[in-house]
Amino acid sequence: MTTTSPKPPFRFGPFLLGWLFPGLGHIMSGNAKRGLYAMSGILILFITGVAVGGIDCVDRKEDRLWFFGQAGAGPITLAVGYANDTLLKTGSAAPMLEAPSVPGGPRVSVSAFKGIAHANDFGTLLVFLAGLLNICVMLDAAVREPSSDAPTSGRRAGDGTPRPAPASPAAPAASGGGGGA
């Protein structure tokens, strides 16, 4: 006979908190250390991506499909996208350069700080990975039992199975057969 564990309830509070900042859903529901680990992993990806590709790696107009995944990392992605719109695309951070365009086509000018080639590729990809992983972390925060990482959770370390009952010292002798006399 098999038993199935009840489906954990989906809690929207930690889910939304996890979107506001990576790991915040776990932290506010009592699993602080787990949240800090998740936050560290996602921020490593996010900060590396923005450092490598510059703020141009979040572009909701030119890289719209990428942006949908990147937005999973929450307002920090929106802030980088806003900085891209206000600093780079307006020319306030760097001069605008005329980009090559098709003959007879409209003239296109881009920021001198615009990311191209590998820099833009990997910056976009790393922030995208951060967004997708944060969605996984948000889902985990939504279904994880609050304060389940406390030492008194009643679970055995390592595999999550309940502690086995201590073995009786008489058991091996009884099964060993023999029966003397």
């Binding site: 680990y37 998740a38 992993g41 996602i42 992983l133 370390a157």
Partner: peptide
Amino acid sequence: LIVPTAIGISLAYKATRSVELAQ
């Protein structure tokens, strides 16, 4: 960049999958 990518993915993944936090 494979190094920070691997570290970031692993840390976030194991934070949700590991039962024992010390591990």
